[in-house]
Amino acid sequence: MQTSVVPDLAHTHARPVHWLATATAMAAVVAAAGLLQPRAQAASQAGQPRTGTAAAPAPAPDPATARLPLECGGVQSVVTKKASGDLDGDGSPETVAVARCDAGSGTPPSGIFVLTQGDGTVPRVVATLLEPAQKLSVGDFAVRDGVITATLLGYSSPNVPSCCPDEQEKVKWQWQGGKFVRTAQA
């Protein structure tokens, strides 16, 4: 057997003590990484409200499953527009639905309804912003930053055909003092 020119490297042979030291060091690194994770509260995306829980917000109510206060006789009601957002600042989204009776001709009057979802139940109407009895229809419609905006279309007289509204008013609703307050858009 030929002897090595290089001295014996006894320190390169792993012993149980070395494995134990390596395992302890790795456990310390993993524990430190776990402690340095961002808190669930601080991990929300920019622009979204932060809450103290890591639970996902409830989905916005679906107006197709709600009972809307429309009297349509023998025809069905139809949701023509919908938009969702947190309107009252409670962290849960509400849905605003524009709905009308599904008439065969003309422009049937619309209603604007605010829906909420409670404990996984069927969505319920918590506010009526526009009554169908006002005989108005809705043009442009949006929900942004807790504000509902709409263009209301109406008629100057009973002689104006129901297909062709000749008046319009731009309005907005915002949650203030425990209720929705309607104002004119600037």
Rank of each mutant, 00 (worst) to 15 (best):
2 Q>N: 11
4 S>Y: 08
7 P>K: 12
8 D>L: 13
12 T>R: 15
12 T>C: 03
14 A>G: 10
14 A>Y: 12
14 A>S: 13
16 P>F: 01
17 V>Y: 03
19 W>R: 12
21 A>H: 02
24 T>C: 07
24 T>H: 00
25 A>E: 00
25 A>R: 01
26 M>C: 10
29 V>C: 09
30 V>A: 14
31 A>E: 01
39 R>Y: 01
40 A>H: 05
40 A>W: 07
42 A>R: 08
42 A>S: 15
44 S>D: 09
46 A>Q: 14
46 A>R: 13
46 A>D: 14
48 Q>P: 00
50 R>A: 14
52 G>E: 10
62 D>N: 15
63 P>A: 07
65 T>P: 00
68 L>V: 12
70 L>M: 10
72 C>Y: 05
72 C>G: 13
79 V>P: 07
82 K>T: 12
83 A>C: 04
91 G>T: 03
92 S>A: 13
92 S>Q: 12
92 S>F: 00
96 V>R: 06
100 R>I: 01
104 G>I: 05
110 S>T: 07
111 G>I: 08
113 F>A: 06
113 F>E: 09
114 V>R: 03
114 V>A: 10
117 Q>M: 07
118 G>I: 03
118 G>W: 00
118 G>L: 08
121 T>M: 08
122 V>C: 03
123 P>E: 02
125 V>F: 03
126 V>A: 04
128 T>I: 09
128 T>K: 14
129 L>E: 12
131 E>C: 01
131 E>M: 04
133 A>M: 01
138 V>T: 14
138 V>H: 02
150 A>M: 11
154 G>K: 04
155 Y>I: 07
161 P>V: 10
161 P>I: 11
161 P>T: 15
162 S>P: 02
165 P>Y: 07
166 D>N: 15
168 Q>Y: 09
170 K>L: 11
170 K>A: 15
171 V>G: 08
174 Q>D: 00
177 G>Q: 13
178 G>E: 02
180 F>R: 05
182 R>F: 02
